[in-house]
Every structure is written in C-alpha cells, then in structure tokens.
Amino acid sequence: MIRINNFIIPLFSLIIFCLLWELLVWYNNWPNYKMASPSDLWPAFWKFKHLFLIYGWETFWRTVVGLILSVLVGLSLGILMGFSKTIRIGLYPILVGFNAIPKATVVPVIALIFVGMHNMNTIIIVILISFFPICVSISIGLSTLEREYEDILLSLGANKFEIFYKIALPKTLPEFFGALKVSTTLAFIGTNLMEIIEPHGKGLGHLFDSGKISADYPLMFAVLITLAVMGIFLYYIVVYLENIFAGWAIRK
C-alpha cells in the first residue's frame, strides 16, 4: 500500500499541475510564443523525437559521469578536511571562493583550455558545480563525530582506519545523501551551461539553443520539461540508493 501511494500520489500531483498549467494558458489566451501549454509539448516532442533521444542521452550520460566524479572528488576532499584540521582551515577559503564564482564565466575558460574536447569540458563543469555540497557535508559529518564514538573503538586499540569505516563513514551517510540530492540537480545545471554557452554544442542544451534560434517555443519548453523529467529520474535513483545504504536514518 505504501509503495503504491509513493507512486500514485506524485503522479496525481503531476497531472493536477499540468491541468492547472493548461488552464492558465487557455484562460489568458496566451499564444504559444509567450507561454506554451502542455498540449503543445507533445507535438514538439514527436516532431523531434530522434533528436530528443540522441541529445537527451548525451546530456544524461555526461551528467551522470560528472556526478559520479564529483562524488569522488567531494568525498576525497571531505575526508581529508574531516580528519585534518590543518587541511580544513587551509582548503575552506579556496573552496568557498571557487564556489562563489559564477560557473557561466568559467565555461569559456574551460572551453579554451581543452579546445574541442566537448565531453570532457562538460564533465569538468559538472564536477566544479556539484562537488561542493558533498565535500562540505562529509567534512562536517566527520569533524563533528562525538568523542565517545571514537572512544569505544580507540579504547580497544582500533586504528584510525577502522574508526573511519566502521563508525565515521556510515554515520555521515545520511548527510552525504542529503548533499547528493542537491548535487544531482546542480549537475544538470552544469551540463546545460556548457551545452548552451559553448557553440557547436551537443545535448539538450544545444537543442534548446536551436529552438531559440528558430523561434520554436514549444520545442524550448519541451526541452525544459525533458530536463525536469531527467532530474526527477536521477533524484529518485539517489533516493533509492539512500534507502539501501542509509535507510536506518529515514523515519518510517
């Protein structure tokens, strides 16, 4: 029953959302260049279905690869900063500064450094944009471990590594997944930034751009909706993993 509800309720709210949207456009009598309605979207999808498949896949795999790599980067930096106060103090200003730079300005820089390596450029931007929440959550989780938790193992002569993987790491998993959810949505922003800003792009960002050039507004909306759907899909994959690895922390 709970499993069915978990599916039915979100679906229901989506349908209501689309109906309200349709109603809003219909009531105001907006033309589709001002605001496309859900009923305009399907024809747009259908007309470009091949492009949606190809570009959608490109955007998707680059986002996922970027996200996996940002988990690796975020985890490693977070672990270093969690265990060494010196490293934490040393790295924080750099990381915060880095995170404060608008990523749109980094895109041309990266594109110039690695000319033509489109996949790599995109993935780098994804990493830059999404490792930060993971890194911060892991370092805070590790550095705020209560002393007693360490003491029960230390008093038995356990080493640092045993404390890390038996206690510290599992204990920070809930925070990690919280951060990963944020990073997942950020990752799509990263992919599309690169795809839209860089000329001769690939992926859904490029499709969006060509919709703009040819003034095909329903197409632009269809791209946005596709991105939203992919975002939701990845998000639920993260939720699924969270249930497996950190299910103990979720209130039933």
């Binding site: 029960i152 204990k171 922390a249």
Partner: peptide, 25 residues
C-alpha cells in the same frame, strides 16, 4: 567502556552493535 550516552550505531541492529568490540579484538 560504557558512557552516559549509550552511543549505539543507529545503522546496526542490537546484536551487531554488541559484537562491535569483537570485530576489533
């Protein structure tokens, strides 16, 4: 050792919490 705060590992069930020291020694 035992403390005022029971410091149990929330992700392990009761039996797996108890055997933790054996995993070290």
């Amino acid at each position: 050792m035992a403390f005022q705060n029971p410091v149990l590992l929330e992700w392990r069930n009761v039996i797996k919490n108890i055997i933790l020291p054996l995993e070290i020694v």
